[in-house]
Design a protein around this nucleic acid. Structure first.
Length: 304
DNA sequence: TGACAGGGGGTGT
DNA sequence: ACACCCCCTGTC
């Protein structure tokens, strides 16, 4: 599986997060196709791309198998959110009047929202219901191994690359029983039915990704297995809709414990989030989520 | 060491 | 509210 040769490490200008924040950005629950080694090198896949990322001297650096490096060079900056001025976005959050948000932002300096391919973001979060990250990653790996074509190197003879994820068109041809073999459980039915629905509507995915937030969300909610939370995750991590505010159990805990919203229902929490954090609520959500996951348990144990 | 609950980043009825 | 699936983890 190890490609014969990699390109030189190349800088990603303007991004120099601490190791913990790089880990949180790549493997904190936005994406499910990155894994890190003991040297701090992260290997990840998306679309037809395979790359490694690490902290360099001054910025994050990347490299790719030589046969893929041109493709990755054209795709990785966008994937890592390089189109966005993150300092400006973070500064636009109401940290000035929200001490807890300020604390979360200080704990994860340089945290980014990824801009993943829309279709595979949808697939990932259809797998996510009542599952933790390692299990979701296992499902995604099995889907790729069993139903994704080997990554196309593009030209001539080349090393064997690990398989990419199947597209929705490819998933539509996979029997539900085969999906179940990928440890999907009841999610297999959702993915199968969603694949049929998408296959029956050419252009539907692309139009959904391009639509404004409210319309895109309404369209996603038509899919079986997609509720409020999954739709918002797909739009935030796979469509760049920063106003999306996914409410999962961590955000529920965070707003209950840190903002005193005891007993509020998810829909009420979502409304509070959008009003309180504004048009970049999704970015605030990511800071709160990361903090709660990393520090929330001990904070609650300490009675905070 | 092996069985056995218990629970998990939700959705649908 | 509860079922839906079932792998993983912690525990005895």
């Amino acid at each position: 599986m190890e490609p014969a040769s990699w390109s030189e490490w190349q800088p990603i200008a303007g991004w120099s997060p601490p190791a913990t924040v790089l880990a949180e950005s790549l493997d904190g629950g936005q994406a499910f196709r990155w894994s890190g080694d003991a040297q701090g090198i992260w290997t990840g896949q998306w679309s037809d791309c395979l790359a490694q990322v690490r902290r360099g001297e001054t910025t994050v650096e990347w490299r790719a198998p030589l046969a893929l490096s041109k493709r990755v060079a054209g795709s990785l900056p966008h994937y890592l959110g390089g189109d966005t001025d993150w300092n400006a976005q973070a500064d636009a959050l109401p940290w000035c009047s929200d001490a807890h948000l300020a604390r979360c932002m200080e704990s994860f300096p340089g945290l980014r929202l990824l801009r993943q391919p829309f279709g595979e973001t949808l697939l990932g979060f259809l797998c996510s219901a009542t599952k933790q990250i390692p299990q979701i990653k296992q499902m995604m790996a099995l889907l790729a191994e069993r139903h994704g074509p080997a990554l196309d190197p593009g030209v001539g003879r080349s090393p064997v690359f690990p398989p990419r994820l199947p597209t929705w068109a490819e998933l539509a041809a996979v029997p539900e029983s085969d999906l179940r073999q990928c440890l999907l459980g009841f999610r297999a039915r959702y993915i199968h039915a969603t694949a049929q629905l998408i296959a029956a509507r050419p252009g539907w995915l692309e139009q959904t990704e391009a639509a404004p937030y409210a319309e895109a969300k309404a369209r996603l909610l038509e899919l079986p297995g997609v509720g409020e939370k999954v739709a918002d995750c797909v739009l935030l991590f796979g469509a760049g809709k920063f106003e999306a505010f996914p409410v999962d159990t961590w955000i529920l805990k965070a707003l209950e414990r840190r903002y005193g919203l005891t007993g509020w229902k998810p829909a009420q929490i979502a409304h509070f989030g959008r009003v309180h954090f504004g048009p970049l609520a999704g970015l605030a959500q990511q800071y709160l989520f990361s903090w709660e996951r990393k520090f929330g348990r001990q904070a609650r144990t300490a009675g905070i």
